[in-house]
Design a protein around this nucleic acid. Structure first.
Lengths: 339, 339
DNA sequence: TTAGATTCTGGTAACGATTCCATCGTGGAA
DNA sequence: TTCCACGATGGAATCGTTACCAGAATCTAA
């Protein structure tokens, strides 16, 4: 008994041809009861397991999906990945995880590697929508693609899109209603849909209130904590300083709150804050931070559904995830006199 | 130009045999300069990329590592996974992610699937060390294994082991020095090394202080928030109630803090708390919680190193990661009178 | 000059599965 | 009884690659 047992061994033990074993095990209709019994006994006895590698080479399908994101340690994406993996697993697919580390070059290499691995599909949150390689690399995939919160033209890709605008608009209106005018907005670069859609909601709220957009308080360049920290610091040194902050994402919020801590500003008293996205333990420790919430479980399982749909022969399509603004104590502070 | 280009197409275009193309591209020494030039020109022109699937079938190596954990959404494990994936990627390996969802059956199925996928190795944080299938399933893997913080005899597996005992002992001594006696300890079940090693540190501190271990305040059954919540509630209803809590892990801490919140107990004033493990934004929001820290980046990259070592022909071995206790404001509260 | 080694190349057999094709009975219909 | 269809089976080709083997050409040494 050396090495793993192959279909050959089963055929030999059952005293039948290779092809008959294959037919029995893949449920072909034209097999006699006696043949079925013989083969199943042999397979059972030898503990035969078909080799997925060989099946893939022959059939062309690997039952494998690539999953490319900036950073799995982002708690939101970790939940997305979990939900996605669970749903794919239920359908017999495995997930290959790749971090792009925020680099378009790494992202490009990841796509190329997934192509060589012949994955059946890819789910990706692109670092940027306008990087020069994006279209070329993706079109050469020859496999269905689901984009997470990205909008790239001419790809025939599916997408899970979050309706940030609604939530951000509600949050901004709420801040404006409380009397805030100097509202800072810190988020990622405008070359991803997420940011553009958030800014859309932000602008609309100002527009509808007939109040000019505080252009100088908008910093769009990175979702990371470092970027949030630096720009929050910068804004807080202005005179007058902003009375409220909208922080775009988990990393960004971390940076902004660090800046508050540095300057001994208490959230909800000295300064107002709305966080876009929540995270694990949000309710426990980040007590009373107003937020715009989206359900990462829904995003993950929807991404899985979309890729499965296309693999089952359906057309690519978009699916929209809602956001919900919840006002909490953190948006109260910072305004000297509410009119 | 239909479908992906194969080695056949390259051979045809270059006017040479299949085997010559293979030799050139795999860097075999016995090839003439002219042959090399012809083949490389053809491969370049056609945009040839070798099919990893076929290479794997032929060579027996898939350059793929399975990664099985309870839950990728646990922030600690997300960082472990990221570091691990990055390190493996640098070495030309891809990572297949599987959540076991805390179920030994799911875990078992995951192992079986990875075996069928012929992964070159597996990195796993087992749900339990004593589940009946564990040894059988793992031995039948026929691939190197790295365990994360688990101790299973007779496997010849590598392991990344955290030295929890040292950190927990220091934390417990610290609490005892502050006058705490009724210290509750809530963590996962004792059928994983993590828990046993933590309890070891906890007991040792009591032993060295000559104080009896508060057996009735120890709850070992789950790392999840639900378990932490239920048992913290239960302990808090005792009279006298515990003056300090040690919470084993991120989920556990979340549950314990929820119980505090329910009973309007302020951490660091009404009750003391030490968290085992930190998490993203720990410093930002969970201000001043004493903690026992271990570096998840180190765990992840060390796991990758260990599996690569075995794949390169070395012996399996263990690697130990240190923990560090840091006293913060949260351990101050709760003692009515410090003696 | 010749034997032997060395370089280079092409053909072919694997890796482990699926699937088409051909063959052989057997049963039903004419 | 003869013919055809169909169920059941074995054999062989195939997926895309690597590796072994044999043979041709060139080179080195006696």
């Amino acid at each position: 008994m050396e090495g793993p047992v192959t279909i050959r061994d089963v055929a030999a033990r059952a005293g039948v041809a290779l092809s008959s074993v294959s037919r029995v095990l893949s449920g072909h209709p034209d097999v006699s009861a006696s043949m079925r019994a013989k083969v199943e006994e042999a397979a059972q006895a030898l503990g035969y397991e078909p080799d997925l590698l060989a099946q893939s080479l022959r059939s062309g399908a690997t039952r494998t999906i690539g999953f490319i994101i900036r950073d799995i340690a982002n708690p939101l994406f970790a939940v997305v990945a979990r939900a996605c993996e669970q749903e794919l697993r239920r359908n017999g697919y495995s997930l290959i995880l790749m971090n792009s580390d925020g680099s378009v070059e790494t992202e490009s290499k990841n796509f190329a590697l997934l192509r060589r691995r012949r994955v059946d599909g890819v789910i990706a949150s692109l670092v940027a929508e306008d990087s020069p390689y994006v279209k070329k690399t993706i079109l050469s995939l020859r496999a269905p693609l689901v984009l997470l919160d990205r909008d790239v033209k001419g790809l025939n890709a599916s997408a899970v899109i979050t309706d940030h605008a609604i939530g951000v608009k509600a949050a901004t209106k709420h801040l404006l209603d409380l009397g805030h005018r100097d509202i800072a907005f810190i988020s990622g670069a405008a070359n991803v849909y997420t940011t553009r859609n958030r800014i859309k909601g932000f602008s609309e709220a100002f527009g509808e209130a007939g109040i000019p957009l505080p252009e100088k308080l908008i910093a769009l360049g990175g979702f990371d904590a470092e970027y949030g920290l630096i720009h929050a610091r910068h804004f807080l040194l202005k005179n007058p300083r902003p009375t409220a902050f909208v922080a775009g994402g988990i990393g960004s919020t971390a940076g902004v709150v660090r800046a508050f801590n540095e300057m001994k500003l208490e959230i909800g008293r000295d300064v107002a804050l709305v966080a876009l996205d929540e995270w694990p333990l949000f309710d426990v420790f980040a007590t009373d931070i107003s937020s715009v919430y989206r359900d990462p479980e829904a995003i993950g399982s929807e991404a899985a559904h979309l890729i499965l749909e296309v693999l089952n022969g359906n057309e690519a399509r978009e699916s929209v995830i809602a956001t919900k603004f919840t006002a909490r104590a953190s948006s109260q502070g910072g305004v000297v006199s509410v009119q």
